[in-house]
Design a protein around this nucleic acid. Structure first.
Length: 580
RNA sequence: GCACCCAUAGCUCAGCUGGAUAGAGCGUUGCCCUCCGAAGGCAAAGGUCAGAGGUUCGAAUCCUCUUGGGUGCGCCA
């Protein structure tokens, strides 16, 4: 149930009825009509802009439309009052039972409360992490992983058919570097001194890979030329890295539906097919690119290349798909990969990338636009970097070459729940400060703690109520008589809960899971505020002497708890029953 | 040089994809605190939404330009 869409539908119905009676012209476009909570709660429960939006096309004064609409809306049993305000806003007040029904809905629907139909079952592919399989995941990947996973959950909750996907960059030069690095560790495992030359990966996470290589090959690969061992070692090392990455993701609570391999695109004709598809649309040609103005590389020389006419689909310059030696650029397999996603029938593609890939956005959108004939939108979310702090001081791990702050480090220090929540407190395109101490702090300004504390408090009163003989099952609470739950503070809390389905929709529409974290923080603040009011006004407390009274109060508390846990579920955070 | 992102209270940030008097937290100031669960509560002060134009009934939000920061710019992915 979404009270806001319900009331909006009512408004639209009333407008249609007014048109039938000649009070409004027929055929007005009502798409811009909104029903939202007013900025100032004193204005009422909901506000609609209908009169202002329609005034011009209808050739009427906003005031006149608003008056007529108000009169008509007042006839609905859910509407307790409708008054015109400001430039033509129509402020609505709902009868208490309308809000009390939100509590009932939360209790009956449980974790499904707020689930929406915005996605209408359409297929969306969320590609995220896609870290090179050359080492453990670091903090930057962590944020991408969390944002992608939460976005996927959010879209699923909003009615999309979601696929979580990881693209393994196992086809480029960097996996050869990995192989050479692993080979040195293999030599080391055989008692030789490794030669970690400049440009190789020095991290000691490859030491066990070297040992494993020795277990498999013994000394057979020693003193052999690279041609002999490169492919085998590369495959072995890549698999080892992917196993490690999967474990890292598991630690964070992320499970992918599909792992796609770049390497698998080579030699199968898929890249050629994708480029041919573009060629058939006249978007592939041989040409020479201009050097970028103001920053000409030292070794620049004009070169004829195979180019994709991405400018025909909104890019700034055309992009090469083949290197000068005739091999594919990294862009070519990416085109093929996205072509594959289009062919798999997705209605929407989302890529989560690091902000350093910003220059990549336009060309990829151009490619998807061209390959899908404009059918499939590609939304690319750039995730900004995470700045680590410890006690307010910038935090760096030991300077030893090859060591950096890994996903594993972060999760081991603060736990997956805190990691995830904090990563979702900022919009993806803004840099995030992550302070190892502050995220564990038990205080008002730590949103993780604040939201969890609210949930724990609710769990606490539920336990108390159960001890006092209240049946605290959701089914029983849903049957409580809520009619007397009409204190302004209680109704305010219900209004906040009633906004939950709407927040889900807003967040899903914008592909912005961080909004869920923001909403939960607000809901927690309201719960705590309500709790504090109970200190003065005992009638507002959840725990009451009279069992019947307590049952209704507990129903309200539990309903808030349901919304918090539904929200946390989207973020992938486990709600706690008690604070320790 | 070009492209993309960012700029909101002293600090850290929200801000419903155009709505009413721009909101929280921290910090500051002043009161109150044996209260279901302690890790506080209430209130006040604090703003040229970087700047200038424009679109609109209405702009922090959209467009243009300027300033200041970040990222990227053929044969790396």
């Amino acid at each position: 149930m979404n009270l806001f869409t319900d009331i909006r539908a009512l408004v639209i119905d009333c407008l249609a009825a007014m048109a039938d009676e000649g009070a409004l012209p027929r055929g007005l476009d009502t798409a811009a009509v909104t029903v939202e909570p007013p900025r100032d709660a004193a204005h009422g429960d909901m506000a609609t802009n209908a009169a202002m939006v329609l005034a011009k096309p209808a050739g009427l004064k906003p005031r006149d439309i608003a008056d007529a609409l108000a009169a008509r809306l007042a006839g609905d049993p859910r509407i307790a009052g409708a008054e015109v305000a400001g430039p033509g806003f129509l402020n609505l007040r709902l009868v208490p039972t309308a809000w009390q029904a939100v509590v009932g809905a939360a209790l009956t629907q449980g974790k499904d409360f707020g689930r929406g139909t915005l996605g209408a079952g359409q297929k969306v592919n969320v590609e995220f992490v896609s870290a090179n399989p050359t080492g453990p995941m670091h903090v930057g990947h962590t944020r991408g992983a969390v944002v992608g996973d939460a976005l996927a959950s959010l879209l699923a909750f909003a009615g999309w058919d979601v696929t979580r996907e990881y693209y393994i960059n196992d086809g480029g030069a960097q996996v050869n570097v990995l192989a050479r690095s692993a080979y040195e560790r293999y030599r080391e495992a055989n008692g030789l001194t490794p030669e970690i030359r400049e440009g190789l990966y020095p991290g000691d996470y490859l030491v066990p890979v070297g040992v494993a290589l020795k277990d498999r090959y013994g000394a057979a690969l020693l003193d052999q030329p690279e041609e002999v061992w490169l492919a085998d070692v590369r495959e072995f090392a890549t698999e080892a890295m992917m196993a490690m990455i999967r474990e890292d993701l598991a630690v964070l609570g992320v499970t992918m539906d599909v792992y796609s391999s770049e390497k698998a695109l080579y030699g199968t004709g898929q890249i050629e097919a994708a480029i041919d598809e573009l060629r058939s649309k006249g978007l592939i040609y041989e040409g020479v690119l201009e050097p970028p103005k103001g920053k000409t590389p030292d070794d620049w020389e004009p070169r004829e290349q195979t180019l994709f006419r991405s400018t025909a689909h909104g890019d700034d310059v055309d992009r090469p798909v083949k290197k000068s030696d005739g091999s594919w650029t990294y862009f070519a397999p990416d085109i093929a990969y996205h072509y594959d996603k289009v062919k798999r029938g997705f209605d929407l593609l989302i890529d989560i990338l690091g902000a350093d890939h910003g220059g990549y956005v336009k060309r990829m959108k151009a490619a998807v636009s061209a390959l899908s004939g404009g059918r499939v939108p590609l939304d690319i979310k750039l995730v900004q970097l995470v700045k680590l702090f410890k006690n307010g001081e910038p935090f760096k791990m030991s300077k030893r070459a090859g060591t950096f702050v890994t996903l594993r480090d972060v999760v081991e220090m603060v736990g997956p729940d805190v990691t995830r929540f904090v990563m979702l407190t900022r919009k993806n395109d803004a840099a995030l400060d992550f302070d190892f101490d502050k995220v564990l702090e038990q205080s008002r300004d730590n949103p993780v703690w604040y939201v969890q504390y609210a949930h724990a408090r609710i769990a606490s009163v539920l336990r108390k109520a159960a001890e006092a003989g209240v049946d605290t099952s959701d089914a029983a609470l849903a049957g409580a008589d809520l009619a007397t739950l009409d204190h302004p503070a209680e109704l305010a809390l219900m209004r906040k809960m009633g906004d939950w389905p709407r927040q889900v929709e807003i967040a899903a529409r914008a592909n912005e899971p961080h909004r869920i974290a923001g909403y939960l923080t607000e809901l927690a603040a309201d719960l705590h505020g309500h709790w504090n009011k109970g200190n003065e006004e005992t009638a507002l407390r959840f725990v009451q002497d009279d069992v019947a009274v307590m049952t209704r109060k507990i129903a309200l508390a539990r309903a808030v708890g349901v919304v918090i846990s539904a929200g946390l579920a989207i973020l992938g955070v486990t709600p706690v029953e008690e604070m320790r």
